[in-house]
Structures are given as structure tokens and as C-alpha cells.
Design a protein around this nucleic acid. Structure first.
Length: 922
RNA sequence: GGGCGGAUAGCUCAGUUGGCAGAGCGCCACCUUUACACGGUGGAUGUCGCAGGUUCGAUCCCUGUUCCGCCUACCA
């Protein structure tokens, strides 16, 4: 019988391509409610449909695949549901950029043709990331691939919107919202990124109407907004100003006078001058203050954040100034206004000021608070059950530390602005009767823009929407038949929030939904905890009356080797595909898993991946070695009747199985990976394979058939144990080994076998390892080449250990490479012998030829000094009455034992030192 | 402003009932020992951020503090 031959070096490329194809063709990843086993399901966090795989995805997906492959092997009825989202703003931006390159625009195409165009783009680029995921070996059920704008999922969105509206949880209202003047759309609060910048604080005089010589000095960071001021606020308990409450000031640069109001919420007496200007149309705080004091709102910026001439006129701004700043952005108008104020002596001073500005998370443009009618989700009633679900443990967040983060955010949550003024997405199912709402449609072309620019349509507050699953045929109020559909689309996260049930067929009550909902685990990064996780919990509880998942595992962010966030503009991105090409997919997956420690970001450097490429190669060669040595009979013997190395490795393997399994149960992928690394490299390869070489290479050895059996058994088991982490390598090796079944993917995950446990063998191994360690160290000290046969003596103080050493003799001979003498130290030669000692164990190596013994002497002196230090420490502790009185007895005994052992070793070493000095002297 | 996390070997990080401080990579020396040089053997390296406290004993628990990172926030 002949064994298959493997190449000397593992070549991932061919292997990976082959297996990912076979796995899919064989349908191993296909889930079915008819499968047996307790369901285990995960829905993938849907990446942007037109995006491509980055290393963050690679981490996120690797972790999910480890869980899924592990549970599948455990016999669970597994579903991993893949898919993508439509990423409204981001995708629309990409296509608009393409159009711009062609000299067109979305307006020139019109809504319908533009959307067609986006679908085309989706069709050409949409499977890029899916292809990449398959290359990563992800064992998703690709037959169930979903997209947020699929018909079924869109139906779910429609249903949810209508029901929430009917329940009074969706409303339309004019509010100040975050507005991106570049994307020309509203954003939700969390779509704004805050950034600290150096700004200036302007102090401006607002003269009193009654007494123009006296002025209130207000402080502001945005002087241009003063044109929209409708009041000035002071603190009602501030003696400097509270006498002025109720009086009026003349608003500089305008014809208006505005009231002085007292407001304890808005005003911080300590800050600035203690007087604040109020611009309700352009500042969130001021908006609320405006509501408290029933102040008018005077917007002066248009939807592009440009100063609007009509609005400036309405605000009574001096016409000369108006014409000079109209059409300018705030930043350009500011110096002009500053100059005018300075000329009139109204600018008191300007000081540096640190402040935060908000930027659009998609395009990084500075967002403006903008007054406009929008759709909102009334969130408190939804948030409450979502808080309870986490509090009472129906949902568990891992690591636990993020729980408070979640709860804190949920308790502070504000209504969610869900309307977006873009075209790509789920259009809001609201229609307006053109008769009933005549005069409430405002269409305007912004000034300073070409006439080809589209009219910007606003449906004013007060318009009465008809929300329905399909377009109304006649108006219930006036029987009119002419309707205008709300042009806005929904926030992409609105549809993502339904993902765990919309992907399973909801609102239909499918068997998939019954089987796989709630899902088992959600794996995600912290960055979308609020965007996505929180909202899924709210929607799941609302519409399924059940949490969407049991566990939320939050993993780290992947950074570059310097700890910098990876970004295309910095050029520090690690491209997972490039890495997979160079080092293999398994190496990347294993690296990411091994670095996924909770609460710490991953600083990824290529050297780490290279190291694990080497690990893969090590495993490959262990398999290669095994195959080279499998010719010959194999017999299965009861574990207890096997040889020492066999019993030892089975015991260690059993330990590793338990460890890896429990670490996986606790989402400690790092520890599971390290346990595998340690076992495979430093136990299996370093020791076990070395220990069994003589047996395998001696055809006559009586242990050979049993050892061959153990070799195959342990390697095959190890491959199954490692498979979730390194699917390709393990499949390739598993297929070459004697096996049953067609793929490792569908084999059983190893379980602990008590018959394998052999603590006495592990203890003996410890002794062997220690002995060989001393022999090898001696070799280096004496400059003996590894091949040189030596004569060495071994002895242990404890009779039991001594007996063990005698039983281990043949392994000592093999690994020590020479002849061994196991007589007591008293009978050892006193000359030409280097003696090392550790914990009662003495090893002596015969010194032959011309060798420099100074290296050996140095080592002994160093050990002596370390021992002396440790002895002193122990003596000190044991001499301390309080320690003896209060420390637990086992600790005291342990200290005493160690001290005894150390003193014995010290005596031996002193002896050894004397002999060495004698040899050097002679 | 508030909250959270981190600070342990040159680098990246493990390290929970407080009782000899570890790994990987890198570094040094030696080695073509027929599984593997993507390898083997041996070795060096730490006031466990700083200052207090609790304790017989602290990398671990408590308090304060510095630095870094993240999240969050309406001080104009």
C-alpha cells in the first residue's frame, strides 16, 4: 500500500480555489428547516452592495464562519444567511460621480432613469464582495442571498412603515435636523461625526433700544448667523443683566429689534459674556429656546447652506450687505460681516476657541442644522422593551462591558429622523392629495445655480399625507384623484433594522422564520452598535414580539501596525485579498482569530500573517511526515494499552479539545487559536512526532501498529478541531488521510474522551522534557554538534521519579542522542563531567575533546546566584511570623518544599562548580 | 463636559477565586539531524505607567494621578 505524496511546501492557492468550489457544489452550506439538530443561525451584517471586502469584513466574517463551521460540525441545524444592503447615500454618491464624469446628472436623467442606472451599477459591481467572501471560504447559504431592496425585503419595509404609522410611532413634522448641504439630505443624529476644531469666539455689541449708549455683548462662534437672531438670552438670576429682561436690543446690520429673554437652560453665566444670541433656525439649542419663548424662526441659509437673498430680505438685513453676501457660504460671508462690525465699532474682540463641528459620515462635509419637514420614528416606546431585553438577559452582549454603553444610549435616545432627500432607496409610502394640499408644495431653484439644476421640492408642514401599502385611487377627503407621492426615501438603516426577520420571509410566516428566528448570535463591530444592533432589537421586539438574537458578540476594530485607523486616503490599508494571495486565506483567518482579544483593537501587521503562514506550513509538513510513515499495519488498541508517547499525546489532545471548545463557547477566539497553536506546534510536532520516530522507523517494533493508529487518529482529530479556523488546509490534509465521509466540513467536531486522560503520562513527560532540556543545554554549552553521540548520566532525588526515568530510558537515548547511565549521582565520574541540576534532577554530560568550559562555568554561576536570591526570598517569607501564622497551609508547605529542593540543588551545583574549576585549573 | 477601555520583554499581546511574570514575532549563538530553513536547538531581555492604601503577601483588589485611544455631549 502506498500513501499519497505531498509537496514540501504548502501552496494555498490551488487548494483554496478547488475546495471552495467543491463545498458549494456539494451544498454543504445549504440550510433547511428539515435538517435535524437544534437550530443555530446567524445573519451576516450586510455590507454595502457595491463595496469590496476590507480587512474589517475579513475579521467579522472569519469569526462568524468559525462559529458556523464549529456549530455545523457539532450537528446543529445551521443557517448563515448572507446578503448586502443598498447603502442609499453612499451608492447614490458613487453613481452621481459617474454621471458627472459623463457630463450628466441625476436631475438631467430624472428619477426613474437614475434609479435604473443605479440598478445597473449594482448589477455590475454587486457581486464583487460576494465573490470575495466566497474566496474567504465563508460557509454561508449562498442560495439564500438577500439584498435590502429585494422584493420581499421591500415588502417588509412597507409593512413596517405603515404599521408604525398606524400605531402613531411614525410622524411627519418640521424640526431642525442635521442636514448635509452636499448630499442635500437630512441625516440622523448618529450619522454626524463630531470633530474638534480651532475656532474663534466673536464678542459683538447689541445696543439697547432704550439706551443706545449701552449694549449687551453677546458671544458667538458663527457671527454670520446673527442675521437670523430673534432674541438675546441672559440668565434670569444674573444680577448683571436680569433687569434688562423684557427690554429690546437693536440687532446690528438689520432693521430689526429683538427681545431680551431670561433663559436658565440656555445660558451659562460663566461662559463668554453671559449673554447669548438666539438663532432658532440654525442651532439646536436655540431652536429649543425659541420654542420656550415662542420666538419666530428666521432661516437665512438655504438647503445648500448658502445665504439666501430672499431670506435675508425677510430678516430685514441691510440691503447693501445682503447683496454682498447672498449666495455665499457662511465661511465666506463671515469675514465680510466681521469687517462691517469692526467698522462700526460693534466688534468688541475675537478670541481663540476650541469647538466641535459635525460632519457628514458619508462625505465629511460640515453639516448644518436645517429647518425642514421630515419623517420621524417616535422612539421611546420602542426603546423601552429593547432596554428591558438586555437588562433581563434575554439578549447578552459580549464582552459585557458594552452593555452599559448600550443601555446609556438607549435611555437617552431621541426620535429617529428616517427621511432622506435622495432617490436610491425605499420611497416613503405617503401620498398627498394635490387638491387638499394645494399651496403646500414649494418648488424652488436655488439662486446662483444654472437653470438646468433641478427644482428643490419641499412639501410643507401641514400637508396631510395618506400612508398606505399602495397608491390611493381617490382622496378620502375630497375624492380627488391627483396625488403627489412623497419624494423622500427611507434611511438605509430602517431596512437593515428588519434584517433578522425580513430575510427569513417576514411578513409571511415562513417555516424558515419559525425555525431560525430568533437568531443565535450577532457578530459585529462596535461602530454599528447604535446604527444597527439597537434598531434591530427595537424592531424585532415590535414586530416579532421576540428578540432578534440571543448573543451579540462585539469585536474589535482592525487598525494598522501603528494603531492608526486604516483608510484609503492614508494609504495604510491592508488589502485582505492581497494578503490571501500572498500568505493564504487560512493564515489570514487564523491571524485575525488569534488577535481577537476582547476590549482591544487589533493592530495588524503583515509579519503576524506571515507567522501563521509558517504555522500552516508546519501543519502541512506534520501531515506529510505522517503520510510518509503510515505504510504498514495499524491496530486500534485501548488507549491505556498504548505506548507512553501515544498515551501522552492523547491526553494532551483531549485537554486541547476541552479547552478549544470552552473558549469557543465563551467567544474567546484568541485563546482557542493559541491553544491550537501551542498544541500543534509545541506538543504534537516538537515532541510527539520526535518521540515516535524510532518506533515508526523500525519495522520490527511491536509498538508500530498501535503508534501508526495513534498518529492517524490524533492528526485526523486535530484537523477537525482546527477546521473552523483553517478550513482549506484541514480539508486538504484530511482528504489525504485515511477517513470516512466525503468532506471534513460535515464531520463531527471532536469531543472529549475520558479514556484519553492520563495525568501520570503527562507527569512523566514533564520529567522527560526537563531532562532533555538539560542535556540539550549542556550540548550547546560544550559546543557539541547536534549529531554528536554523547554519554550522559541522569539521576533524580526522588525514587519515584528515578523509576520513571528508568522507564523512559529509550526515549532519553533517542532524544538525548547518545548513551545514558541511570545510576545514582554518587557513582558518577568526578572528572570530565558537566553537571546541571533542576528540581532534584541531575544531568551529567561527559566532556570530551578540547572544549572551553568557561561558558558552562558562567551558566552555573548564574544559576547559583539566581538560586541564592530565591532561597533568600523564601527564607525571608518563612521566617516572617505573620506569614506563617496567616498564609494558607498549602502555600506554606509549597514554599517549604521549594526551599528544600532549592537547597539540595544548590549543594549539587556547588559540587558541580568545584569540579568545573578543577577541570579548568588542571 | 460625561462615560468606557488600554498602559506587562525591542514590537504585538496573554495573564480572575492575590502566593515562583508568559506567548508570538524580532534579536544573539550554533545547526543542511531525510516532515518542515515558511525549519531545529539553546540563549538574552521586564522597578507589570506613576503615587498611595488594603493584605503576611499586590501585575491582579481600592483610591488618586499621568499618558494614549474610543464612545458620547447643545456651553454659545
Amino acid at each position: 500500500m502506498s500513501s499519497p505524496q505531498l509537496d514540501k511546501t504548502y501552496d494555498p492557492k490551488a487548494v483554496e480555489a478547488r475546495w471552495s468550489q467543491v463545498w458549494q457544489e456539494q451544498g454543504y452550506f445549504h440550510a433547511s428547516p428539515t435538517h435535524t439538530g437544534q437550530p443555530y443561525s446567524i445573519v451576516i451584517p450586510p455590507p454595502n452592495v457595491t463595496g469590496s471586502l476590507h480587512v474589517g469584513h475579513a475579521l467579522n466574517h472569519s469569526i462568524q464562519d468559525i462559529l458556523i463551521r464549529w456549530r455545523r460540525m457539532q450537528g446543529r441545524n445551521v443557517l448563515w444567511l448572507p446578503g448586502t444592503d443598498h447603502a442609499g447615500i453612499a451608492t447614490q454618491n458613487v453613481v452621481e460621480k459617474q454621471l458627472m464624469g459623463e457630463g450628466a446628472s441625476r436631475e438631467s436623467l430624472g428619477r426613474e432613469r437614475f434609479i435604473e442606472r443605479v440598478w445597473q451599477w449594482k448589477a455590475t459591481s454587486g457581486d464583487t464582495i460576494i465573490r470575495q467572501q466566497k474566496r474567504l471560504g465563508e460557509s454561508c447559504d449562498w442560495d439564500r442571498l438577500r439584498f435590502t431592496m429585494d422584493e420581499g425585503l421591500s415588502k417588509a419595509v412597507l409593512e413596517v412603515f405603515v404599521r408604525l404609522y398606524e400605531d402613531g410611532l411614525i410622524y411627519r413634522g418640521e424640526r431642525l435636523i442635521n442636514w448635509c448641504p452636499r448630499c442635500l439630505t437630512a441625516l440622523s443624529d448618529i450619522e454626524v461625526e463630531h470633530e474638534d476644531v480651532k475656532g474663534k469666539l466673536y464678542h459683538i455689541r447689541y445696543p439697547l433700544v432704550d439706551d443706545p449708549q449701552t449694549a449687551l455683548i453677546v458671544a458667538t462662534t458663527r457671527p454670520e448667523t446673527m442675521l437670523g437672531d430673534t432674541a438675546v438670552a441672559v440668565h434670569p438670576e444674573d444680577p448683571r443683566y436680569n433687569g434688562l429682561i423684557g427690554k429690546r436690543v437693536r440687532l446690528p446690520l438689520t432693521s430689526r429689534t429683538i427681545p431680551i429673554v431670561g433663559d436658565a437652560i440656555l445660558v451659562d453665566r460663566e461662559f463668554g459674556t453671559g449673554a447669548v444670541k438666539i438663532t432658532p433656525a440654525h442651532d439646536f439649542n436655540d431652536f429649543e429656546a425659541g420654542e420656550r419663548h415662542q420666538l419666530p424662526r428666521l432661516p437665512i441659509l438655504d438647503h445648500q447652506a448658502l445665504l439666501d437673498l430672499d431670506a435675508l430680505n425677510t430678516a430685514g438685513v441691510e440691503s447693501e450687505l445682503s447683496t454682498s453676501i447672498a449666495g455665499l457660504p457662511g465661511s465666506k460671508a463671515r469675514p465680510k460681516i466681521e469687517q462691517v462690525l469692526k467698522d462700526r465699532g460693534l466688534l468688541v474682540n475675537v478670541e481663540d476657541h476650541k469647538m466641535a463641528i459635525g460632519k457628514c459620515y458619508r462625505c465629511k462635509t460640515v453639516v448644518e442644522p436645517y429647518l425642514s419637514p421630515q419623517w420621524f420614528v417616535k422612539i421611546k416606546p420602542l426603546a423601552e422593551p429593547a432596554i428591558t431585553a438586555v437588562e433581563d438577559g434575554r439578549i447578552r452582549i459580549v464582552p459585557e462591558g458594552w452593555t452599559n454603553n448600550y443601555l446609556g444610549w438607549m435611555r437617552e435616545i431621541k426620535d429617529w429622523c428616517i427621511s432622506r432627500q435622495i432617490w436610491w432607496g425605499h420611497q416613503i409610502p405617503a401620498w398627498y392629495c394635490t387638491t387638499c394640499n394645494s399651496g403646500l408644495f414649494l418648488s424652488k431653484v436655488p439662486m446662483g445655480t444654472p437653470v438646468t439644476a433641478h427644482a428643490f421640492l419641499t412639501i410643507l408642514q401641514g400637508a396631510k399625507p395618506i400612508v398606505a401599502r399602495s397608491a390611493p385611487t381617490s382622496c378620502p377627503a375630497c375624492n380627488g384623484t391627483s396625488f403627489l407621492r412623497d419624494p423622500d426615501v427611507l434611511d438605509t438603516w430602517f431596512s437593515s433594522a428588519l434584517w433578522p426577520f425580513s430575510t427569513l420571509g417576514w411578513p409571511e410566516q415562513t417555516v424558515e422564520l419559525k425555525t431560525y428566528y430568533p437568531t443565535s448570535t450577532l457578530v459585529t463591530g462596535l461602530d454599528i452598535l447604535f446604527f444597527w444592533v439597537a434598531r434591530m432589537i427595537m424592531m424585532g421586539l415590535k414586530f416579532m414580539d421576540e428578540v432578534p438574537f440571543r448573543d451579540v458578540y462585539i469585536h474589535a476594530l482592525v487598525r494598522d501596525a501603528e494603531g492608526q485607523k486604516m483608510s484609503k486616503s492614508k494609504g495604510n490599508v491592508i488589502d485582505p485579498l492581497h494578503v490571501m494571495e500572498e500568505f493564504g486565506t487560512d493564515a489570514l483567518r487564523f491571524t485575525l482569530a488569534s488577535m481577537a482579544s476582547p476590549g482591544r483593537d487589533i493592530k495588524l501587521a503583515e509579519e503576524r500573517i506571515e507567522g501563521n503562514r509558517n504555522f500552516a506550513n508546519k501543519i502541512w509538513n506534520a501531515a506529510r511526515f505522517s503520510l510518509m510513515n503510515l505504510d504498514g499495519p495499524r491496530t486500534a488498541v485501548a488507549p491505556a494499552d498504548r505506548s507512553f508517547p501515544d498515551r501522552w499525546i492523547l491526553s494532551r489532545l483531549n485537554h486541547t479539545i476541552q479547552l478549544v471548545t470552552s473558549e469557543l463557547e465563551n467567544y474567546r477566539f484568541d485563546r482557542a487559536a493559541n491553544a491550537l497553536y501551542q498544541f500543534i506546534w509545541h506538543e504534537y510536532c516538537d515532541w510527539y512526532l520526535e518521540l515516535i520516530k524510532p518506533t515508526l522507523q523500525n519495522a520490527a517494533s511491536p509498538d508500530a501498529p498501535g503508534t501508526r493508529q495513534t498518529l492517524v487518529e490524533t492528526l485526523e482529530t486535530t484537523m477537525r478541531l482546527l477546521h473552523p479556523f483553517m478550513p482549506f488546509l484541514t480539508e486538504e490534509i484530511w482528504q489525504t488521510l485515511p477517513h470516512q465521509g466525503e468532506s471534513i466540513v460535515i464531520q463531527r467536531y471532536p469531543t472529549s474522551d475520558t479514556a484519553w486522560i492520563a495525568p501520570d503520562m503527562e507527569q512523566r513527560f514533564g520529567l522527560l522534557e526537563q531532562t532533555i532540556g538539560l542535556v540539550r543545554a549542556s550540548r550547546v554549552l560544550l559546543n557539541y554538534p547536534p549529531g554528536q553521540q554523547i554519554t550522559f548520566y541522569v539521576s533524580h532525588n526522588e525514587p519515584q521519579r528515578q523509576r520513571h526515568l528508568e522507564q523512559l530510558q529509550k526515549y532519553l537515548i533517542h532524544l538525548g542522542r547518545g548513551t545514558v547511565d541511570l545510576t545514582p549521582t554518587t557513582t558518577w565520574p568526578t572528572d570530565n563531567l558537566l553537571r546541571l541540576v533542576a528540581e532534584g534532577l541531575s544531568v551529567g554530560i561527559v566532556v570530551t575533546g578540547e572544549v572551553d568550559l568557561n561558558k558552562a562555568l558562567d551558566r552555573i554561576l548564574k544559576e547559583q546566584s539566581e538560586q541564592t536570591k530565591e532561597i533568600g526570598r523564601l527564607e525571608g517569607k518563612l521566617g516572617n511570623q505573620e506569614f506563617v501564622a496567616k498564609a494558607p497551609p498549602e502555600v506554606i508547605t509549597d514554599h517549604q518544599d521549594r526551599l528544600t529542593s532549592l537547597r539540595r540543588d544548590q549543594a549539587m551545583l556547588a559540587n558541580s562548580e568545584q569540579q568545573l574549576r578543577a577541570m579548568l585549573g588542571g
